[in-house]
């Protein structure tokens, strides 16, 4: 059991790490944030100064190293846009996210389980088929489509 737990935790850590690398690389290539942050009226020298101040002139591995080192100490960095600790901004939004997730979970469990049992008991009734049909529709419709319909 403990071996299993350790292994699962290790795997999760690996997944988090891989995600961090992926997102880091992704964000790095998507565009230089300074190009949208800085005022269009800024001169080349002022843009360069901003890049340097934000540490974006350093090589990617170095930026990543700094990020990981700070993250291990509980510092997730400072938001470029808000100039405040990133953790604080995440925590600000957390209640709303949790609220959405919990309500959605409660609703889907509350509605989903009875419907599933019903469909399972009478798989060939009209109700059963409708429920299974709706399930196959709901689980495969594109995310964006589901959200707007």
């Amino acid at each position: 059991m403990i071996v299993y737990l350790v292994r699962r935790v290790g795997q999760s850590l690996l997944a988090v790490m891989a995600m961090a690398v992926l997102v880091f690389i992704g964000v790095f290539f998507i565009g230089n944030p300074v190009d949208v942050l800085v005022s269009p009226e800024a001169s080349q020298a002022q843009i360069a100064a901003t890049v340097e101040r934000l540490g974006l002139d350093r090589p990617l591995y170095e930026q990543f190293g700094i990020f990981v080192w700070n993250a291990l100490q509980g510092d997730l960095g400072t938001s470029f846009v808000y100039g405040r600790p990133a953790l604080e901004i995440i925590l600000d939004r957390l209640p709303a996210t949790l609220e959405l997730a919990l309500v959605a979970l409660a609703l889907s469990v509350g509605i989903g389980i009875p419907l599933g049992v019903w469909a399972g008991l009478r798989p060939d009734s009209i109700a059963g088929r409708t429920i299974m049909g709706a399930r196959s529709w709901g689980s495969r419709c594109p995310i964006s489509g589901r959200a707007c319909c």
């Binding site: 795997q11 690996l14 997944a15 891989a18 995600m19 992926l22 997102v23 690389i25 992704g26 290539f29 998507i30 995310i143």
Partner: peptide
């Protein structure tokens, strides 16, 4: 299989988005 596990633990849409952004 660890590689497969790792990949399946991320939402496909997220990976695809990052890839296409690159």
């Amino acid at each position: 299989m660890r590689i497969v596990d790792l990949q399946l633990s991320f939402p496909a849409i997220l990976i695809a988005l990052i890839l296409l952004a690159l």
